[in-house]
């Protein structure tokens, strides 16, 4: 399935490309952050400390005017005073409007993004790849039907369709116990990871068509190969041929597409969370939506920092995708779709 030539190409391309190294490094950091979030986050990301709200990140202490109402001689007066807002070493990225630690929220947000990105991609691939392979292999009516369904599916923008479906189905979420917290290793942290299950299903349903297109194209070109004809002559049935001969040879472009799709779905998830169509409140997109209300009053970091996290993750995954594409299959630039 993965030949030694493929491995050689991957290594060669990796040695030559600084961007591939950067991509791998970013992805490794994000995956480790997501997995070990309870040990990396200094605070519980959902703990509110109202007396510590709106603290700036380290290095950005500032003075602002704050108005408050005070009782002076039995009358209520509005007093404006200069307040020095100092960053706390305990809150590296500052705190949000409810005094939650931004760094911890960014760390935990990686879990949501990565899990939704990977599960959504797997779901999309598990629908799209079989459908595409069958259509491309059998051609004829099955293929025509698939292509028409794909055309209709493409006519709805992913984000619009996702928003509509979540609007109709509701924002369901599943609590998955955090093994580290259950084992008592990080007692302060949230006991469970909230998986926005509707979002996973919906992003899978709106993005399967990209996999179907690529798998179909591969099957179309592979079905005429000599070895496929040979095994058909030997009496192998269609399903065996698809599974044994077509799929292994079509897997490379599917993997490349899968990488790009994880990035696209992370962007889609953040858009959905931003618009309030998610089942979790621990997500980068959700935090950007919260931070948006603070932009005009000067607390720039609440919206900025989660966005940087999204950008770095997606850059890392895209670089990884570029590396895989350059090493494995130079022919599929531009397919893949996005949020």
């Amino acid at each position: 399935m993965v030949s030694s030539r493929v491995i050689r190409n991957l290594k060669k391309e990796f040695r030559q490309s600084g961007l591939a190294k950067l991509g791998l490094a970013l992805v490794v950091v994000i995956v480790l952050t997501a997995v070990f979030a309870p040990f990396i986050a200094p605070h519980n990301p959902t703990d509110q400390q109202l007396n510590q709200s709106e603290l700036p990140p380290i290095g950005f202490s500032e003075t602002t005017e704050r108005t408050s109402s005070q009782m002076v001689d039995g009358e209520i007066q509005t007093v404006t005073e200069e307040v020095e807002i100092t960053a706390e070493p305990d809150h590296v990225f500052g705190t949000d409007g409810l005094g939650r630690d931004m760094f911890s929220r960014v760390v935990y947000g990686a879990r949501t993004s990565l899990v939704v990105g990977v599960l959504g991609t797997l779901l999309a691939a598990s629908i799209g790849v079989p459908v595409g392979l069958l259509a491309g292999y059998h051609r004829g009516r099955v293929d025509d039907a698939l292509m028409r369904i794909a055309d209709v599916s493409l006519a709805f923008p992913s984000l619009v369709l996702a928003v509509a479906l979540i609007g109709l189905w509701g924002r369901a979420a599943v609590d998955i116990p955090d093994p580290f917290v259950v084992a008592g290793l990080a007692p302060e942290m949230p006991e469970s990871f909230v998986l926005p299950i509707t979002v996973v299903i919906v992003v899978g349903l709106v993005n399967w068509v990209w996999f179907a297109r690529v798998a179909r194209g591969e099957a179309l070109s592979l079905r005429g190969q000599e070895y496929v004809k040979a095994s058909r002559a030997l009496g192998a049935d269609d399903n065996t041929i698809i599974l044994r001969h077509i799929l292994p040879n079509a897997i490379t472009p599917i993997i490349v597409l899968g990488t790009v799709q994880v990035a696209a779905i992370i962007l889609l998830e953040s858009s959905l969370s931003f618009l309030g169509f998610s089942g979790t409140t621990l997500s980068w997109g959700f935090d950007i939506a919260q931070g948006r209300d603070y932009v005009s009053s000067g607390q720039w970091w609440i919206a900025s920092i989660p966005g940087l996290a999204i950008m770095l993750s997606v850059i890392g995954i895209n670089l990884l995708g570029d590396w895989l594409r350059d090493a494995l299959d130079p022919g599929i630039e531009g397919e893949g779709g996005a949020a």
Binding site: G285, I288, G291, A303, P306, G307, M311, V314, L319, A339
Partner: peptide, 18 residues
Amino acid sequence: SLGGISTPNFWLGIMLIL
């Protein structure tokens, strides 16, 4: 262009506003 395809557009919008 790498940054451009990796940036959520709603976030970019908020940063432009900022």
